[in-house]
């Protein structure tokens, strides 16, 4: 099989790769770029742990070929914090206890990011709908909903974290 030369733009940075066409975006991120914050929980799009943003939209990176994401803007969990400062969604997840084992957290946080980018003031139902593709077995989701609601307020400037 012919390998493909491609450029992935991840968190604003271009990376040149030579890879098998069958390499998934999740594999390329984790194994080729060392961005292991993207987790893989099932490999078939059932759990949402591998969620990343491609041109602002959530996708299961286990079901996208790396080459399909070439030329698009990819955002992974490593791209959210501003230097040492956590993104308000990350901050809210920590503050509200929305993280337990942490394996679903990167995907969950990115789904929350896509949601809040599109809808800065979601209702509780809209939060639940927006995060419905991300399974969490630890939290029962309650503190996740609270964290997203809190982050939305912060991002709207209604409150400051701390």
């Amino acid at each position: 099989m012919n390998k493909l030369a491609l450029t992935l733009n991840v968190n604003g940075q271009d990376y040149d790769l030579l890879c098998e066409p069958s390499r998934t975006l999740a594999q390329a991120l984790r194994e080729d770029l060392g961005l292991t914050g993207t987790k893989v929980g099932c490999g078939v799009g059932d759990c949402g742990a591998c969620t990343v943003l491609v041109d602002g939209q959530t996708v299961n990176s286990c079901l996208v070929l790396a080459t399909q994401a070439a030329g698009k803007a990819i955002v992974t969990i490593e791209g959210l914090a501003d230097g040492p400062k956590l993104h308000p969604i990350q901050e809210a997840f920590v503050e509200h206890g929305a993280i337990q084992c942490g394996f679903c957290s990167p995907g969950m946080i990115l789904s929350a990011k896509a949601l809040l980018d599109a809808n800065p003031a979601p209702s509780e139902l809209e939060i639940r709908q927006g995060l419905s593709g991300n399974l969490c077995r630890c939290t029962g989701y309650q503190k996740i909903v609270q964290a997203v609601d809190s982050a939305a307020r912060t991002l709207r400037g209604e409150r400051t974290v701390g």
Partner: peptide
């Protein structure tokens, strides 16, 4: 259909 991530694709 599916989840938000699946619907996006």
């Amino acid at each position: 259909l599916g989840s938000p991530q699946v619907r996006n694709r």
